[in-house]
């Protein structure tokens, strides 16, 4: 980034930065770099720098709000999603089935939390959320099976494995899919 020193230009760029707070960081930096370069080049091409000329350059650039509004139009809506929020459901859903082996109630809580976070996240489409939720269906089946068999048989019953395996593998596969889908949406 080229340095622009004139206080009016600095104030102008600061105003742009403030308005651009809602943009994704790389878009904001890109816009600021482009405008800084513009000002530096415009100053270099008309070297006599009295205040009126500096003002004229900035006036021609226009209202920071208008510029940022234009930048926002071209932006697919990128809502800030914390890394935690985007990863948590992907971990919780496959883990719910495993947790259920230890304690079906704990497994149930993990599953519900996972589904709630999945639907609350803005960076998956409705279709992706339905896929994620449907893939979670083996979990309550496994949990119910475990709650039932825990009362009657030994905990390491081989029959239990046929319940646990899909309740881990199917959501895990969905998590991989959702991870990719989420990246696609937010890029």
């Amino acid at each position: 980034m080229k340095t622009v020193e004139h206080p009016l230009a600095v104030a102008y760029l600061e105003a742009v930065a403030r308005e651009a707070a809602a943009l994704a960081p790389e878009r904001r930096n890109e816009l600021l770099a482009d405008l800084t370069e513009h000002i530096a080049v415009a100053f270099a091409e008309r070297p006599a720098r009295n205040e009126a000329e500096v003002k004229a350059v900035l006036d021609r650039l226009g209202d920071p709000r208008t510029i940022v509004a234009t930048a926002r139009e071209g932006e697919t809506i990128v809502l800030p999603v914390s890394k935690w929020h985007s990863l948590a459901p992907l971990i919780l859903l496959p883990v719910a089935g495993l947790l259920g082996v230890v304690n079906p109630v704990l497994g149930g809580i993990a599953m519900i939390a996972g589904v709630v976070l999945l639907w609350a996240a803005p960076h998956w489409s409705r279709r992706d959320k339905i896929i994620g939720t449907v893939a979670t269906l083996p979990v309550p089946i496994a949990l119910a099976g475990m709650a039932f068999t825990a009362a009657t048989t030994a905990p390491l019953d081989p029959g239990l494995l046929t319940l646990v395996a899909p309740s881990v593998l199917v959501p895990a596969a969905a998590s991989v899919y959702l991870l990719r889908a989420g990246r696609r949406m937010s890029s």
Binding site: D34, H38, D63, I67, A71, G74
Partner: peptide, 28 residues
Amino acid sequence: YGVELLEVLGTVNVMTTSQGTIYPLLAR
């Protein structure tokens, strides 16, 4: 370059009102 593009665009009055808006466009 940017300033040059804007100078040419500025020769017709309808194409730019706020020069700065060209940069988000160029970025896109």
